[in-house]
Design a protein around this nucleic acid. Structure first.
Lengths: 225, 225
DNA sequence: CTCAGACGAAACTGGCGGGTGTAACTCATC
DNA sequence: GATGAGTTACACCCGCCAGTTTCGTCTGAG
């Protein structure tokens, strides 16, 4: 609606556009409730009655705004994935020209480990993986947008460091994979089975990061002389 | 009922004991059908009507033999886990005193990678992980019996090699984790989202193993002199 | 003021699936 | 050839849940 002769802008997928504020409030409440419930209980064990009750909204309203349960789910998951994606994008941003490369890598490892073990990411990973049979496209999309993107960022950063002589490598993508999974491999594997309860404490995370950096630098560090 | 003063031997959990052969055949058919269906479709999307139909058995018989769906599921999963466990146990058995340590490690890496990417293991991992909220004890049990056991075997093998001077390390458990996830980390992560379709071909698997061994030896190999 | 359209509460439909009850059948054993 | 355990076919109950319908209410536009 609106302007004088202007085009009607339909901005559904972008979410917050210029819509009736009532609809916005309603959608926000539903999204918030559904996000919490899906992440907590999974797809099948979350009924839309639950979502409606938690959102303080009638079930019909959910159907009016989201079509059906599958579309609600994909919208929820893509939304959370987007925030995870932003977070991942910031991982290597502060990866400037530090002096001590070991220290730089340690910081990167810690940030990577902390991000992967954060409750939100843990729940998201487990949810998407668990529903990947029912939503294969969604799972592929998440994988492409989060883990793949992180490795790619590492790869670019390592290629830079190699060009400056701080690292020695021929395949920066492989080096990025090695770094990433030296850091998060074991804990990631355990988390898939035991959930957030398996996340190690800060001290252990620090030890993991240190050991990973040490192994990585032994293989990819610049020759001392 | 029963013999002249003899005790009644109930040997349910051991499975094949000296039971009525009819029970054995029935249980075997049910287990086979349920294993295929659970691994293929997951827990919720497998109905006991499906299982009964595939096993050529009445639904009532399933309930007579297994009690309820949850018990059937745990029995199935523990059964498949047991075979995966045996398989894992054999990983380091042929890890004798080879001459070239790089070659030995490469063989170990290939076997590890092949085992983790085998269709049966892929499906089992995805199934258990997906149902770990519903069956947390089962998930813990699997994790303890398969991944943890593999790492432990690596750790023992590496400690041996270190004692003989073929490797240089202070924490064999950490070294084992590093080795394991250098090899299978990336593919494992991808498989959790994309399933068996994400398993790389033989050539790529070989390249992965080679790169992993190279990185591992740079960090943990014995000093040349 | 009126009308349209969205919202809300609640009841409802329809299908699915776990689990049960029952009566008849099979087959080894005594 | 009778007994009894195990199996079968089949009907059935029941709860859950996606999705719909009804009806009443509110709000904002003209």
């Amino acid at each position: 609606m609106s302007g004088t002769g202007g085009e009607i802008v339909v901005r559904i997928t972008t979410g917050d556009g210029d819509l009736d504020p009532r609809i916005l409030r309603t959608r926000a409440a539903v999204v918030q409730a559904a996000t919490a419930l899906f992440l907590e209980n999974g797809y099948v064990d979350t009924s839309l009655d639950d979502v409606a009750a938690r959102a303080g909204v009638s079930k019909k309203t959910i159907y009016n705004n989201f079509g059906d349960k599958e579309r609600l789910f994909t919208e929820i998951v893509l939304g959370v994935t987007a925030t995870a994606e932003e977070f991942a994008a910031g991982l290597t941003s502060s990866f400037g020209d530090g002096r001590d490369i070991a220290e730089m890598l340690h910081g990167l490892a810690r940030r990577h480990l902390d991000s992967v073990t954060s409750p939100a990411v843990v729940r998201l990973r487990r949810l998407i993986s668990a529903e990947s049979r029912r939503f294969p496209d969604l799972a592929r999309e998440y994988y492409r947008r989060a883990p793949v993107r992180v490795i790619a960022a590492f790869s670019a950063a390592f290629a830079d460091l190699a060009a400056r002589g701080s690292l020695q490598l021929t395949d920066s993508a492989r080096a990025a994979e090695h770094f990433a999974f030296l850091v998060v491999g074991p804990v990631l594997d355990r988390i898939m089975f035991e959930g957030a309860a398996a996340v190690p404490g800060a001290d252990e995370r620090d030890a993991i990061a240190r050991a990973a950096v040490s192994t990585f630098l032994a293989a990819y560090g610049a020759r001392p002389a």
